[in-house]
């Protein structure tokens, strides 16, 4: 039985690199920016995470995976808590995460200034095709395969793709 001792918060954060988003498995929870806080107390640890969307169905599974991972490193007690405020934003996604998304075939979120406004039929956000890098793309639907994505199509290479929408 491994016993954990003298461990740093940075080390715990490294361990959490093993926990991925079940809906976008190429991203770790660190890449997503949903790990809000880590507190250590001897061989006990508390990890605070934040949901991407209010109804994110992956959150319970992510919490379970955090527990399993940290217990396997020898922590005696792992608590995962949930903090809603301040609300998660795609600004918290790491640059490494955005690069990984693109390689996976999902267009990464644009920077905040293009955040969804309330105007109807405004110009589609300019989104770059993750396959051929063309900016000549169109939005097919505001909502994609999961809450955090929209559906796009490239007008040059014709490939449809998911866009991890700004939030």
């Amino acid at each position: 039985m491994k016993i954990i001792s003298d461990i740093s918060i940075e080390k715990v954060r490294e361990m959490l690199e093993e926990v991925t988003d079940p809906e976008v498995p190429v991203l770790t929870i660190n890449d997503l920016g949903i790990v809000r806080d880590i507190t250590l107390d001897g061989d006990r640890v508390e990890v605070t995470i934040t949901p991407t969307y209010s109804g994110c169905p992956a959150l319970d599974m992510i919490a379970a995976n955090i527990r399993m991972t940290l217990l396997s490193y020898g922590f005696a007690d792992v608590k995962v808590s949930n903090a809603i405020s301040p609300a998660w934003t795609t600004d918290w996604m790491s640059e490494k995460g955005k690069q990984k998304l693109k390689e996976f075939g999902i267009a990464p979120p644009n920077a905040k200034p293009q955040f969804c406004n309330t105007n109807y039929f405004t110009e589609n956000e300019a989104v770059q095709c993750p396959h051929c890098d063309s900016w000549n793309t169109r939005r097919i639907s505001e909502f994609g395969s999961t809450a955090c994505k929209a559906l796009y199509q490239c007008k040059d290479c014709q490939e449809p793709f998911d866009y991890f929408k700004c939030h």
């Binding site: 969307y53 809603i84 405020s85 609300a87 969804c116 309330t118 105007n119 909502f143």
Partner: peptide, 26 residues
Amino acid sequence: SVIAGISAKALKEVTYHMRWSGEWVI
């Protein structure tokens, strides 16, 4: 503060709902 936190989060989602349904009405 709890109501404020839940609402701030939900507001981002509802913005999409309103735009999507409004475009459909038009």
